[in-house]
Computed example of a mutant assay.
Amino acid sequence: MDDGRPLFLQIAEQIEGSIIDGSLPEETRVPSTNELAAFHRINPATAANGINQLVTDGVLYKRRGIGMFVASGAREQLLERRRQDFGRKFIAPLLGEAQKLGMDAEDLKKMIDAWRDET
């Protein structure tokens, strides 16, 4: 688990991925910081930083004495954020390059359809 980004962000993204794919449904308990630390062989404080980031983002909430849980609406919140990120990372550059090449939306649609048909 080391792709150059801080470990706490990788922990947060792993939990986000589990929420998005449905393996951690809303209102279910997430692994504790100690469970995450033991599983990933990292410092519990690092795991706690990842969890705390998700609490700050409103994705998780704490039930005193029980643990952290997935908040209602967390999946849709994460999907919307990822859609926005997708637009910034991929769509904006795609449109910029298409404009340089003199392509319009219909040209892009045809190209996307052709690539999709090849797979």
Rank of each mutant, 00 (worst) to 15 (best):
L79Q: 08
F90R: 12
G96W: 00
F90C: 13
G67R: 13
I11F: 01
P44G: 09
G22P: 03
E35F: 07
K109S: 02
R41K: 14
S32N: 05
G87T: 14
D117A: 15
E13T: 09
E118N: 08
K100T: 01
A98L: 08
E106Q: 10
A105T: 11
R116C: 02
I112F: 10
I20H: 00
E106C: 01
L94D: 07
P25K: 11
Q10W: 15
I11T: 01
P44M: 10
D21M: 00
R63V: 15
D107Q: 12
V30P: 00
L54V: 12
L108P: 00
F69K: 06
T119H: 09
G58W: 14
R82C: 07
T56Y: 11
L101G: 08
K89G: 00
E76K: 06
R88F: 04
F86W: 07
R116H: 04
D113T: 07
Y61N: 03
G50C: 05
E76N: 06
E13H: 08
V55S: 05
Q53V: 08
N52T: 10
N34Y: 11
R116Y: 03
A12W: 01
F39N: 07
F90D: 13
A71D: 14
G22K: 07
I51G: 00
A12G: 01
N49P: 02
L79N: 03
G96L: 05
R64I: 13
D107E: 07
R75N: 15
R83Y: 09
Q10P: 03
W115S: 09
D57K: 14
P25G: 12
L78P: 10
L36C: 06
S18D: 14
L54Y: 09
A45L: 07
T119C: 04
D3V: 10
D3F: 14
M103H: 00
G87C: 12
F39K: 11
K109H: 03
T46W: 04
G65N: 13
I51L: 11
M103A: 14
K62I: 13
L9V: 05
T33C: 11
G73S: 09
P6G: 06
L108C: 03
A47D: 05
G22T: 12
G65H: 13
A92Y: 08
E13A: 11
H40P: 03
I91T: 08
L54F: 09
R82Q: 15
R88G: 04
L101S: 05
G4V: 04
G22M: 05
V55C: 01
F90E: 10
E76H: 06
A47P: 06
A105E: 15
D3A: 13
R116E: 11
E16Y: 13
G87Y: 02
T56K: 14
R75D: 15
E27V: 01
A71K: 15
M68N: 10
S23K: 10
R82M: 08
D113P: 05
A71M: 15
G50Q: 09
